[in-house]
Simulated assay, not measured.
Amino acid sequence: MAYESMWETGGAVAAADLRPDIPHPARRYDYYLGGKDNFPADRAAAEKALAANPEFRSTARANRGFLTRAVRCVADRGVDQFLDIGTGIPTAGNTHEIAQTADPAARVVYVDNDPIVLSHARALMAGSGSGRTTVIHADLREPDALLDSVRAADLLDLTRPVGLVLAAVLHFLRDEDEPYRAVTTLLDALPSGSHLVLSHGTADFIPAEIRDRVTGVYDQATAPLVGRTRAQVHAFFDGLDLLDPGVVTVPLWRPDDTPAPGADRVSMYGAVARKP
């Protein structure tokens, strides 16, 4: 299938915008997953974070597993179009691969605000087997403008149910960025039957001294790390119908195999819900 791409400015993002000297969460996440699409500054910051909390790598992998199961669940419920925001650098088990395994005609729009993420996503979608997939440049902190870009891409039919994917992205928004308003704005634009797939980092199981060291590492990057409590994560689903088992640590959300010991203390919550 043909690759479709729309950039916010109508053209490629300037190379200077990559800012390889400043650690970026998407590139650091790629490093945690064992990828190679990262810069020395990202690797150095990731190693500092791992020194403060060695569970970052296993948490990233657990979140990836959650994404696979959650998107598969939503696709199995008949949803054939997805809006994945803060997608990160493409790696195995991307949303379009999961959705199009269930339905080869599934449509997926990826959104990110990092030029290097967009560049890698474009290269990935240029290959065969990507179905109907588009990558756009927009910012979750500006949900109205983001939705305008999604509509302009003209790939998703927003009068039909959409799977909204916000996997491990909202913890990079400070309270002043109004993350709850962003989620509400996006959901308000989607019809009944749409689903929200959301995972979010938490400090509920991390000692205060480790939390402070990790926060300090992320404060030096392009985005902070805001770990929210289970109750705060649950609030993102207000007004929605949560699917069982509700808001749980990501390894415990409908696992394919018996969870490993300590799965109930992994520092990432996840859940899926339907818009009534």
Rank of each mutant, 00 (worst) to 15 (best):
L240K: 00
T222S: 15
L196F: 11
W253L: 10
H171L: 12
L190V: 03
L252I: 02
R265E: 14
D257R: 10
D175M: 06
V217E: 08
L173Y: 02
G201H: 05
V217R: 03
R160A: 15
A273H: 01
V248W: 04
S199E: 11
V250L: 05
D238Q: 11
L173G: 01
A273F: 03
I206A: 11
V272M: 13
G216N: 03
A208G: 08
H234A: 15
A203L: 13
Y180W: 13
P255L: 10
D241H: 12
T222P: 04
T258D: 13
Q220R: 15
T159H: 11
R230D: 06
R228Q: 10
D212H: 03
A273E: 02
G216F: 01
V165K: 04
L198N: 04
V266L: 12
L186T: 01
L187G: 03
R254I: 11
A223G: 08
T202F: 07
V217N: 07
A167E: 01
A167D: 04
R228G: 12
P224L: 07
V165F: 04
D177L: 11
P207G: 07
D175L: 10
D244W: 00
A231N: 03
D244T: 09
L196P: 04
L164K: 05
Y180R: 14
S267K: 00
A263D: 07
E176A: 12
L243A: 12
V183A: 15
T184Q: 14
L196K: 04
G246V: 10
L196D: 06
F205Q: 07
W253I: 06
R211F: 12
T215R: 14
P161T: 02
L173K: 02
T215H: 11
P224Q: 01
V169W: 09
A208F: 06
F237C: 09
T222N: 08
T202A: 06
F236T: 01
T249Q: 10
V214Y: 06
G201A: 13
L173I: 04
A231D: 13
L242I: 06
G216V: 01
S267M: 13
S194T: 02
R274S: 15
L187V: 02
V247T: 08
L190A: 08
A231Q: 08
R211L: 15
P251L: 13
V226G: 01
I206Y: 01
D219Y: 02
T215K: 13
A235W: 05
R211W: 14
V217D: 08
E209W: 09
D264G: 13
L190H: 03
E176D: 14
R174W: 01
A223D: 04
Q220I: 00
R174Y: 03
R181W: 00
A231F: 01
L166G: 07
L225Y: 09
R274T: 15
P191V: 09
R228K: 14
E178G: 00
F172G: 10
D204R: 06
Q220W: 00
V248G: 02
D177A: 15
D244L: 09
R230M: 10
G193D: 08
V266G: 04
T159P: 00
V272W: 06
G262V: 11
F172Q: 08
L198C: 09
D241V: 14
P255H: 08
G246D: 12
V248P: 01
Y180P: 01
L196H: 07
A168Q: 02
V169Y: 09
V214K: 07
L225E: 02
A221Y: 03
T184S: 15
